[in-house]
Design a protein around this nucleic acid. Structure first.
Lengths: 269, 269
DNA sequence: CAACAAATTTCATATAACGGAATTATTGAT
DNA sequence: ATCAATAATTCCGTTATATGAAATTTGTTG
């Protein structure tokens, strides 16, 4: 699949290759296929990969390229995104200890929600975002929906327009159903969809507002549906909302608005 | 600080810039300083940063550049390298539930051990590797030592030669003491050093062998020294070893040998 | 508001990135 | 084992684009 908007600089090209390498799973990807998918010649891809490898971003195992562990390390050593993860760590730990369920921290990034951190509960949870670093379109999943619901109107509409087709692709809500859920979410201030990934599992998400009152993140829990029945649910909601508020209060005034809309799109395509 | 080995390609230069951006804390770094540290002109740095930003790897907040979420998202995939992290997840969850202590998954990467995953226990643990993505020289810390001890002889010797100075630098074991520990580790098949980072804390590590019988990873627990006293310790060892065996059995035959030794070295310097 | 410093743009030049073609290595089939 | 066939890598003449000096704009500070 060749992108229509060809990057003109060698750097853009190389970063595109890096992305493709990342998209290939653990088994890695061959030079030939990389070149083809990136729409560049094989020698070009080869040279770029050599440089990428020399800098420790990719590694070559056999004839396949994959992301190098050093890359992972590099990101880990780097100052975390905006410190949100560090700020949120105690919050997540508290929630995890209190609720003994799996806790997620999502942040908004353009048209997506990204799982910034997650603390595992006693049972394995499969969420739409998957593990740390996973992405979902805004609107899919409880935390993601919570963020979307509390975005300022025009932005929300822009995201909806953009995401509805993608949500449909993933067999999720159509626009009407989505709007109903958003309305409900906005009214009650939290999201509790039963539309889990696995029957019997359920989740609950609340938005986190920054100093400007923007919904920049969400906290959510994923657990057995049994554990979110009417007698326990209100308590969990209260606890989550309290922690979300305390996290919001710690946020420094930084803009986390739409940033790379075009890229976000193609990254999902 | 200007590197002596100037990368000749624009890509290498740009990746160097990316690295520098990563090295800067969350507050970001100014173009001027980037250009200076990278040893290139300001316009050059500027153009590279524009491209990096367009691809979503860095973001510009005010006049400072810092790593953007897309970078972290991509890097998170690097951890899945050979799928070990996914394979190990249930193992870690089980261990965490059974032992209610902090559990670590370390993998070997050249002369280092990297913390691939970690599940938090009830008390905060400070480990040598720190959080997920952290690195330590092989030989420092229980899990790291467990890996080193079970490496094939020639490789082990190479690593020891390489790492001893670094271990000394960090005020750890000298070569003689290290060899004693390695011998003990190899004899009993697990590591239980009291040389914790914090008095009163202790840890225990066991190696994970791949299909070829190579020590590619380690599982370890970090907890209060009290919780590893003679009456509980053997049980914990047994559980850890059992899980390490089951994890090892799941490993697909992939070579995780020395890969970027030079890079590993400079990354630590 | 002036004076400065940093960011960004412009531009002519040189470089190093490009792809086609040739070469070498690897893989698969007989 | 030998021989295709396919992919990786190297060569090389051409050209695109990356480059730094200098100019321009922006915004910061006294």
């Amino acid at each position: 699949m060749i992108d229509s908007a060809e990057p003109q600089s060698s750097l853009r090209r190389a970063l595109g290759l890096l992305r493709l390498v990342g998209a290939a799973e653990a088994s890695g990807i061959r030079l030939k296929d990389l070149a083809e998918q990136a729409g560049c010649s094989q020698p070009t891809a080869h040279r770029a990969l050599q440089d990428l490898a020399a800098e420790g971003f990719v590694e070559q195992v056999g004839k396949r390229y994959r992301l190098a562990l050093d890359f992972f390390v590099l990101a880990a050593r780097a100052g975390h995104a905006d410190g949100l993860r560090d700020l949120a760590k105690p919050v997540l730990l508290r929630l995890s200890a209190t609720l003994t369920d799996t806790i997620f921290l999502l942040v908004r990034n353009g048209y997506e929600a990204v799982c910034l951190d997650r603390i595992e509960g006693p049972f394995p949870i499969r969420s739409f975002t998957g593990d740390i670093g996973g992405k979902v379109p805004l609107g899919l999943g409880q935390g993601s929906l919570a963020i979307l619901a509390h975005l300022p109107e025009p932005e929300r509409e822009a995201v909806i327009r953009f995401n509805v087709p993608r949500l449909l692709d993933r067999g999720f809500l159509d626009e009407a159903a989505l709007r109903v859920e958003l309305e409900k979410a906005r009214a009650q201030g939290w999201v509790n969809l039963n539309t889990g990934l696995i029957p019997g599992m359920a989740g609950l998400g609340v938005p986190v507002f920054d100093a400007q009152g923007r919904a920049v993140a969400a906290l959510s829990v994923g657990t057995l549906a049994d554990r979110l029945r009417p007698e326990r649910l209100p308590g969990v909601v209260a606890i989550l909302k309290a922690e979300a508020a305390s996290l919001g209060a710690m946020l420094n005034p930084f803009d986390t608005a739409l940033r790379h809309p075009s890229r976000s799109l193609s990254a999902v395509a």
